[in-house]
Amino acid sequence: MILLSPIGTLGRAVLQTLASVGRVALFALSTLTHMLRPPFYGREFGLALLNIGWLSLPVVGLTAIFTGGALALQIYAGGARFNAEAVVPQIVAIGMVRELGPVLVGLMIAARVTSSIAAEIATMKVTEQIDALVTLSTNPMKYLVAPRVLAALIVVPLLVAVGDVIGIAGGYAVATGSLGFNPATYLKNTVDFLEALDIVSSLVKGCAFGFIAALMGCWFGMNSGRGAQGVGRATKGSVEAAAVLILAANFLLTGAFFSL
């Protein structure tokens, strides 16, 4: 019995994990069906677009410009060891568009949007506002969850696109400003090197990460425990889950797009 108990513990943990994966999957599915069926709450959707998209622009822009700049410096320094300094524009472009743009924007959205969605919905849950919604004949899945997830699904790829461009601009500024690159050649090299697939993969990743970020915020918020502690736990859990899932999804998507 004593020997078996660690196996039992492990088994229970695995079962619990599988059960919560199942529940999240069902939640995601129900979110998707609620997106497609009326009633639709336009005002909520508009506010979500504003919050997730427009108001995230500063943080996305700043993250991207510094990362692009640092990337240019690193590639220049690293490339110099092989007499390959000239590849800066190509590597900055591919690095930003394929990986860093989507991942950094995804993580910033997890920090900024997932946390605020989770805290907001969890507070509503704790103060019985979700119950009140139900008694006022309003489905919280439709009123709270669907607009936020749909908005993230639409607007995060756009943020990623903006991040990609600003990141490349950061690299361009550093390369032409202090590394002695010719501006016209830098831009030409960037544009010539990028392929459609790079851009498509970037946007698809943006969709996936936006979906994950908003979904985790909603899931943890709707399943929050009681009291202020419950709200705190929900917020922390949502950001952790969103960040890890975004990185895992990034790995899978990179594999799917580029290892064939």
């Binding site: 509503m124 103060t127 019985e128 506002q129 119950d131 009140a132 008694t135 006022l136 004949s137």
Partner: peptide, 19 residues
């Protein structure tokens, strides 16, 4: 559910206003 809830009004103990 919708028809059922449409017949009800509820005042929650804590108010539960949408802030």
């Amino acid at each position: 559910r919708d028809a059922f809830l449409a017949r009800f009004g509820m005042l929650f103990q804590g108010g539960a206003l949408f802030d």
